[in-house]
Design a protein around this nucleic acid. Structure first.
Length: 911
RNA sequence: GGGCGAAUAGCUCAGCUGGUCUAGAGCGCCUGCCUUACACGCAGGAUGUCGGGGGUUCGAAUCCCUCUUCGCCCACCA
C-alpha cells in the first residue's frame, strides 16, 4: 500500500534545508572514523579568521571542498573534512581594539592581560559564527574535529616547532630593518607588506660639501680641483622620494665606476641639520637613476641597511622616527620638526629646503610602495630586533616535492608561482608586536652580564644558564607560524594520535592563489620538516569572486554579496550550483551584486526543475518499482534504451569531470541530463505508458526510478539539499541518506550507440514537425497530419518503430509514410478544420542528409590528404638515429592504417 | 623592470590533444502557449568578420609571431 506523495508544486528550500542538515548531523555521516578500513580522503579547511563572517569567497571555496568531499565519500572513501578557525593575530586584535576605541579606551589603558581576556571574550561570543554559516551552505565538515589555532593543544605544537627549529639553528634573533606598520604597531613579514603602485615625487636635494674634520687634506684638494663648476664643487645632489629620512643618513654614495664623481673621502652636510656624513663609493648605486648619488639611511631602509653594514660593519644607525612614524623628539632631528608625523615632516622639510635653495628640483615619480596588508597604512621600514626563520633549508624538500611531481597544482601554472617564491625565498620574520597570539617561548635573563636566552616548550621561571630571574619575550608569533602546522597540528601532533596516523598526509588542498606564499608553500615546508612528508598531493586553486567590474568582492568596497541572503532567497543549492557552474577550472567567478536574480536564478530554477521532475515521477510510482536488473530488456522501447545509454554517458562524464577538477563541466553535464534528456524527452515519451494508455507502464516506472535515482546521486555533491529531500521520498531508499549512498557505477553494457543514433533521428523528426507547426501557426490543440517520404532516408524505418513517440511529442494526429497528398490544401487547414497536412519531406529531407554526407566526405578527404602528406614527408627519416627511425616507422604504420580506414569510409560514402 | 592570465552572441562565460565547432550554455530579447510535474514552465525564433594583423596547415576560436586593450602576481632604480 502506498500513500499518495504530496509535494508542493514549487521547491521551497527554506522549508527543508535546516532539517536536512540536522538529519545528516544526527546520522553522523560527516564524522570520519579513524578505525574504518576504508581508504581516507582528507581535506583540511583553509581556516577562516575566527571573527570572519561568510562572504562569497568562502562560499565558493567551501562549496568546492564540499563537492570533492561528498563525491569521495559517496565513492567509498573515509572522507574527513577538517574544519576550524584561525586566531588571525592582527585582524582580530584590530577588531577588538576598535571596540575599545568606541568605549574611549586603548589597549594600553586596560593592559595586556585584560586585553587578551577581552579578545577571548569576543572570540567566544562571535567566534565560530562562520562555522555555523558554513552549515547553511551545506558544508559536510567533520564537526567533531573542529580546531582553533589558539587551542591549548595547538599551542603545544607551536611551541614544539619553535623550540625544535631554534635547536636546529633555523630560528634566530636578528637585528635588521623590517617592515613596520605604524598603525598596527607591529613588524610584518615580506608577504604582509604589499606593493602598491603609487604616484610619488622624486626630490633632488643639495648636500653641501664640507671640509672633512681631520680628513685627508690632499684628497680634498684634488677633489676641489677636479670640479670645474663652482656649484658642483659645493654640492652633491641626491635624489630621494623620502626627504624626511635624511636626518638618519650616515653616508652619501656613488658608484665606483661613475666618472662624473671623484669625491670619495669628502664629507657633506645633511641639510637643515649641519650633521656631517662621508661621501663613499659602493656598487649598490644604479648610475642611471637620479643623479647617481644615493643617500644611505640604514635604520629606515632595508637596502641602505645592507649597504651601510657593508661600508662600515660597526657604524651607527641612527633612528629618527618613533614607532608611530613621527619624527623623534631628540637626536638628529632638528627641533622644529620633532614630533611631526612623517608626511607632515616631509612637507615641512621640502618647504624649508626650497626656502634655503637646497631643493634643486622635484620630479614626478611612479614607484611601488609597501602597505600593510591588514590596514593599508604605508609601511615604515624600521631597524629592530626580531625573530626569524631561516627558510632556505626548509624550502629545499618543498621544492623537491614539486619537481618530482609528488605535489601538483591545478591549474598547473600556479606551480611556477610556488616554485619561484621558494627559489628566491628569504628569511621569515615571525615576531609580531601584538598581544593576541602565541607568545614567543623565549625567556631573557635579566642579568645583563649573563644575557642568556632560554627557549623552552614549558614556561621558565629561571635562567637555564645562571639561574637568575627571567622575563618572557613580549612578542607573539605571526599568525601564519601557527597556520603552517594546520594539516598535522589539527590531528594531534606532536602526540602520535590515531587520527594523525590515519589522516596525515591528506589529499587535496582547496584555496585561493593569493595565499600560495602565506600558507600553501609554508604548509608543505612544515609537513616535510616535521612529518617527513608533504601534507597533500594536490593543490586546487579556486578563482576569486568578483563583481561585473571585475573588482574583487569585499565589504569595504560595498560590492559584496552576502551568501546567507542568497541562501534565504534562492536556497543553498542555487548558490552552490551558481558558483560551481559559473567557474571554469581556476577562473574567477563574476557575479552581479546588484542583480541577484540574474546571478542565481539559473540555480534556483534548476533546483525547481529537479523538484518537479521528482514530483512527477514520485506521483507516478505506485509501488516500489522493479529494480533495473529485474526488468526484461526485451520489453525496452527505443526511448528506454536511449535514456539508459544517456545515463551511462552522464555517469562517466560527471565522474571524470569531478576527478579532473572540472566541476563546472560536471554541473553542466548533469544539468543537461536532468533537464533536456530526462525531463524534456524521456518523461514526455513515457507518459502514455504511465497513464495506462499503452502497455509497458512497469518498465517505464522501473526505469524512471533507476534513472532519476542515478541523477540524484550524480547531482548530490553539487546540490545536496534538494537531492537529499527527493531521495527520501524515492521508494526503496528505506530511510537511507543520499549523503551516504554509493556513487553510481558505470555499466558499459548499457551504452547503446544504435539507440543514441536512432533516438537522435526521432528528435530531429519531432523538431521538424514542431518547427513547422510554429511556422504555420497551428493552434496548440490542433493535430496535424505528417507525411514522411520513405525514400528520403532510412530514418523512416527508425521512425516507423517510434511512430507513437513522434506522434505524441510532435502532437501529430497521424504520421504517415508515403508522399504527401498532391491536393492544393496540403499546407492549409483541412476542410473539417481539424488537421493540417505537413509533408515532412521538406523538414528532414534527402538534401540535408546529402549535405551532411558531403561534409563528411570533404572532412574525410581532407584527413586523407593530411595522412598522405605525412607519409610523403617520411623520406627524410632514413638518415635519423635508429630509435627515431623506429618511432617514425611506428607512426608511419599508424598513418597507413588510418589511410586505409579513411579510404574505406570514403568508399562507403559512395566515392 | 620580469612573469602570468584574459579578450568568443546584448550580459556572464564554456569550448581540454587543430577536423561532427555548420561555434555552444545560462540570463536577456522576439513569437506562440496556464498542454492533468514545473510560467522558477513548454514549444519555436533572432543575434557572433571567435580583439586587430600576419603565419603554419588539406583544414585554425584552437598552434606560432606581432600589435591593441584589460587584469593579476613578483621585483632593493633610492
Amino acid at each position: 500500500m502506498t500513500e499518495k506523495i504530496e509535494l508542493a508544486p514549487q521547491y521551497d528550500p527554506t522549508a527543508i534545508e535546516a532539517a536536512t542538515y540536522r538529519r545528516w548531523l544526527d546520522a553522523g555521516v560527516f564524522t570520519a572514523d579513524a578505525e574504518s578500513p576504508r581508504e581516507p580522503f582528507v581535506i583540511v579547511i583553509p581556516p577562516p579568521n575566527v571573527t570572519d563572517r561568510l562572504h562569497m569567497g568562502h562560499g565558493l571555496n567551501n562549496t568546492v571542498q564540499d563537492v570533492l568531499i561528498r563525491f569521495e565519500r559517496m565513492r567509498g572513501r573515509e572522507a574527513c573534512w577538517l574544519p576550524g578557525t584561525d586566531h588571525a593575530g592582527i585582524a582580530t586584535q584590530n577588531v577588538v581594539e576598535r571596540m575599545l576605541v568606541k568605549a574611549g579606551l586603548n589597549r594600553h589603558d586596560i593592559g595586556r592581560e585584560a586585553f587578551v581576556e577581552r579578545v577571548w571574550e569576543h572570540v567566544h561570543t562571535t567566534g565560530g559564527t562562520i562555522l555555523e554559516q558554513l552549515k547553511a551552505i551545506g558544508a559536510s565538515c567533520d564537526w567533531s574535529r573542529t580546531r582553533f589555532t589558539l587551542d591549548d593543544s595547538y599551542s603545544t605544537a607551536v611551541r614544539r616547532v619553535f623550540v625544535q627549529l631554534y635547536d636546529e639553528g633555523l630560528i634566530y634573533r636578528g637585528h635588521r630593518v623590517i617592515h613596520w606598520c605604524p598603525r598596527c604597531l607591529t613588524s610584518l613579514s615580506d608577504e604582509e607588506a604589499e606593493f602598491h603602485e603609487t604616484d610619488g615625487t622624486l626630490y633632488y636635494i643639495k648636500y653641501r660639501l664640507v671640509e672633512p674634520q681631520g680628513g685627508s687634506v690632499a684628497g680634498v684638494a684634488e677633489a676641489a680641483e677636479a670640479a670645474d663648476d663652482p656649484d658642483e664643487a659645493e654640492y652633491v645632489t641626491v635624489a630621494t622620494t623620502r626627504p624626511e629620512t635624511m636626518f638618519g643618513d650616515v653616508a652619501v654614495i656613488y658608484h665606483p665606476d661613475d666618472e662624473r664623481y671623484d669625491l670619495a673621502g669628502r664629507e657633506v652636510e645633511i641639510p637643515l641639520s649641519g650633521i656631517r656624513i662621508p661621501v663613499r663609493t659602493h656598487v649598490a648605486v644604479e648610475q642611471d637613476f637620479g643623479t647617481g648619488m644615493l643617500k644611505i639611511t640604514p635604520a629606515h631602509d632595508a637596502n641602505d641597511f645592507d649597504t651601510a653594514r657593508d661600508l662600515d660593519p660597526d657604524g651607527a644607525m641612527p633612528v629618527i622616527m618613533t614607532e608611530q612614524a613621527r619624527m623623534t623628539e631628540g637626536g638628529r632631528v632638528p627641533p622644529v620638526l620633532r614630533g611631526l608625523d612623517r608626511f607632515e615632516a616631509r612637507r615641512r622639510i621640502v618647504d624649508m629646503l626650497r626656502a634655503s635653495g637646497q631643493l634643486e628640483k622635484i620630479a614626478p615619480h611612479r614607484h611601488a610602495v609597501r602597505h600593510c596588508y591588514r590596514c593599508d597604512t604605508v609601511i615604515e621600514p624600521r631597524l629592530s630586533d626580531q625573530w626569524f626563520v631561516r627558510m632556505k633549508p626548509l624550502a629545499e624538500p618543498a621544492l623537491a616535492a614539486y619537481h618530482e611531481g609528488r605535489l601538483r597544482f591545478v591549474p598547473d601554472r600556479w606551480g611556477a608561482v610556488y616554485q619561484r617564491w621558494l627559489d628566491e625565498i628569504r628569511d621569515w620574520n615571525i615576531s609580531r608586536q601584538l598581544w593576541w597570539g602565541h607568545r614567543i617561548p623565549a625567556w631573557y635573563c635579566t642579568d645583563a652580564a649573563c644575557g642568556h636566552i632560554t627557549v623552552s616548550e614549558t614556561d621558565m621561571t629561571a635562567c637555564a644558564k645562571c639561574g637568575g630571574a627571567v622575563r618572557q619575550d613580549e612578542d607573539v608569533l605571526d599568525t601564519w607560524f601557527s597556520s603552517w602546522l594546520w594539516p598535522f597540528a589539527t590531528f594531534g601532533w606532536p602526540t602520535e594520535t590515531e587520527d594523525l596516523a590515519r589522516f596525515y598526509p591528506g589529499d587535496t588542498l582547496v584555496t585561493g592563489p593569493d595565499i600560495i606564499f602565506f600558507w600553501v608553500a609554508r604548509m608543505v615546508m612544515a609537513g616535510c620538516h616535521f612529518m617527513g612528508d608533504i601534507p597533500f598531493d594536490t593543490v586546487f586553486l579556486n578563482g576569486i569572486v568578483r563583481d561585473t567590474q571585475h573588482q574583487k568582492m569585499s565589504k569595504s568596497r560595498g560590492n559584496g554579496i552576502d551568501p546567507l541572503d542568497v541562501v534565504a532567497r534562492f536556497g543553498a543549492d542555487a548558490l552552490r550550483f551558481t558558483v560551481i557552474a559559473g567557474s571554469a577550472i581556476g577562473t574567477d567567478v563574476i557575479l552581479d551584486p546588484h542583480d541577484l536574480e540574474t546571478s542565481f536564478a539559473a540555480g534556483r530554477n534548476f533546483a525547481n526543475k529537479l523538484w518537479n521532475v521528482g514530483r512527477f515521477i514520485l506521483q507516478n510510482l505506485a509501488d516500489t518499482p522493479a529494480p533495473l536488473d529485474q526488468l526484461d530488456p526485451a520489453q525496452f522501447e527505443l526511448a528506454d534504451r536511449w535514456i539508459l545509454s544517456q545515463c551511462q554517458r552522464t555517469i562517466a562524464e560527471v565522474t571524470e569531470a569531478i576527478e579532473r577538477y572540472r566541476l563546472n563541466e560536471a554541473a553542466h553535464r548533469i544539468y543537461h541530463f536532468v533537464w533536456d534528456d530526462l525531463a524534456d524527452w524521456y518523461v514526455e515519451q513515457v507518459k502514455p505508458r504511465l497513464y495506462g494508455q499503452v502497455r509497458g507502464g512497469d518498465v517505464a516506472r522501473g526505469l524512471l526510478a533507476e534513472v532519476f535515482g542515478t541523477a540524484l546521486r550524480l547531482l548530490h555533491p553539487i546540490m545536496p539539499f534538494v537531492t537529499e529531500e527527493l531521495w527520501g521520498h524515492l521508494p526503496g531508499t528505506d530511510g537511507t541518506l543520499l549523503a551516504a549512498a554509493p556513487w553510481p557505477e558505470r555499466q558499459p553494457s548499457l551504452n547503446d550507440a544504435e539507440a543514441d543514433d536512432r533516438f537522435a533521428r526521432v528528435q530531429e523528426l519531432v523538431g521538424a514537425v514542431r518547427a513547422i507547426r510554429a511556422e504555420y501557426g497551428v493552434a496548440p490543440g490542433r493535430a496535424v497530419r505528417a507525411y514522411v517520404q520513405p525514400a528520403s532516408l532510412d530514418a523512416a524505418e527508425a521512425c516507423n518503430a517510434e511512430q507513437r513517440t513522434v506522434e505524441r511529442l510532435a502532437k501529430i494526429g497521424t504520421l504517415t509514410f508515403g508522399p504527401a497528398p498532391e491536393e492544393p490544401g496540403a499546407h492549409a487547414v483541412l476542410a473539417d478544420g481539424s488537421a493540417l497536412a505537413v509533408p515532412l519531406g521538406d523538414a528532414i529531407d534527402l538534401a540535408r542528409e546529402c549535405a551532411r554526407l558531403s561534409a563528411e566526405r570533404d572532412r574525410i578527404a581532407g584527413l586523407l590528404r593530411g595522412v598522405a602528406a605525412k607519409l610523403a614527408n617520411q623520406q627524410f627519416v632514413e638518415r635519423a638515429p635508429a630509435e627515431v627511425v623506429d618511432r617514425e616507422r611506428a607512426k608511419e604504420q599508424t598513418w597507413r592504417e588510418q589511410r586505409d580506414a579513411l579510404t574505406q569510409k570514403l568508399h562507403a560514402l559512395g566515392c
